[in-house]
């Protein structure tokens, strides 16, 4: 008698076949049964809304409102006027939409490297077995668990031009007062102003308000990146470092040739997460600037939300959401194709 190994299940003897088929059937049905609770919730509250959203985006809801439907029913009023893809074509010719995408891209292009760079630096330093590592870790992570409402209130106070602490420190060093959350001047312009340079509007760079927003969101999220980087660093075998040290490598060389390549799966994962996160970013921007001043920090999400709740353009905002969704999807696929290929898996 040989001991039956699980491998034998895959290649059964014929006379066991009916029993095994029953077992297989049981497994399939149990699988779906276990999935059912989660799937029902996700289908109702994630998938169905998407189809509903398609419907909404192809309707002219303003007409529905004109019919005198009021209260919540205006949101489910029958689609009185089917307009097909009009909302989508309109979106592509809407300068405000393009502007919001530009703001989103700016926000993402600055936030992502700053967050990941700072996260990697701090994680790498923490990983050098420094004293108080645990305490540092706890402190770095604290902003991430703080509610957006509370942290935005604190930061709005910090940024306050007249009574905020940031300005009262800066003025002590002779820096002129900065109107953090309400200044749309580009930062390059601000930096070059003392030299008497006036930049054309295209080259002014991201606005002061955008910079303030990025500092704030970096404060919120960098602890999360540090935590994941630390886990990734812990996964690199110590023998590799020891071997390289025997060969005389140290400091930057070690980081460049061992840490960085072996950390690439973690970095890649965080990159994907942060890019998606910055493109979807809403809460922190909304409570901090509400997209202002003007439209300086109106990212795509903020623009969609404003269309929805301030202008009641349900169809249009649904169409915009789809466009944003596809942009995020394309970005993710693109990253998977190109960055993903360069990741070193051990």
């Amino acid at each position: 008698m040989t001991v039956q190994t699980p491998g034998l299940i895959a290649t059964p003897k014929p006379r066991h076949a009916p029993a095994l088929r029953l077992r297989r059937l049981q497994e399939i049905s149990l699988g779906y049964l276990l999935l059912a609770p989660a799937l029902i919730i996700l289908i109702v509250f994630e998938i169905l809304p998407i189809f509903y959203g398609v419907g909404i985006s192809m309707c002219d809801w303003k007409t529905g409102a004109a019919l005198g439907v009021e209260g919540w029913q205006r949101w489910i009023a029958p689609c009185v006027s089917f307009i097909g893809i009009d909302s989508y074509t309109r979106a592509f010719t809407d300068p405000a939409m393009w502007h919001s995408l530009l703001v989103t891209a700016t926000y993402s292009l600055i936030s992502v490297p700053v967050q990941l760079g700072l996260g990697l630096l701090l994680a790498y330093l923490l990983f050098q077995k420094v004293r108080g590592q645990q305490a540092f870790r706890v402190l770095f992570f604290m902003p991430y668990i703080t509610s957006t409402v509370a942290s935005a209130a604190i930061w709005a106070f910090l940024y306050n031009p007249d009574k905020g602490l940031i300005n009262s420190i800066l003025t002590r060093f002779g820096v002129p007062e900065i109107r953090w959350l309400s200044d749309t001047t580009g930062i390059f312009q601000v930096l070059l102003k003392p030299a008497g340079v006036d930049l054309p509007s295209g080259l002014e760079g991201p606005s002061i308000a955008m910079l303030a927003l990025i500092i704030y969101t970096t404060w919120v999220f960098v602890g999360y990146d540090i935590t994941i980087f630390l886990a990734g660093l812990g996964n690199i075998p110590a023998e590799l470092y020891d071997a390289a040290k025997v060969d005389g490598a140290s400091g930057w060389t070690l980081f460049r040739h061992i840490t960085f390549p072996l950390l690439s799966p973690t970095t890649f994962f965080l990159l994907m997460l942060t890019v998606i996160g910055t493109f979807k970013a809403f809460n922190h921007i909304w409570v901090m600037t509400q997209g202002g001043p003007g439209d300086a920090t109106t990212t795509a999400s903020i623009y969609i939300f404003k269309q929805l709740f301030q202008l009641n353009r349900y169809g249009y905002s649904a169409a915009l959401s789809f466009i944003l969704f596809f942009i995020i999807l394309i970005l993710t696929v693109f990253q998977n194709r190109f960055a993903g290929r360069r990741v070193v898996y051990d």
Partner: peptide, 19 residues
């Protein structure tokens, strides 16, 4: 893939469901 859906899209339909 549903993790990439912007929250604004599902907000209104879900509100309607609540009603």
């Amino acid at each position: 893939a549903t993790m990439m859906i912007p929250g604004e899209l599902t907000l209104i339909p879900n509100y309607v469901f609540m009603v």
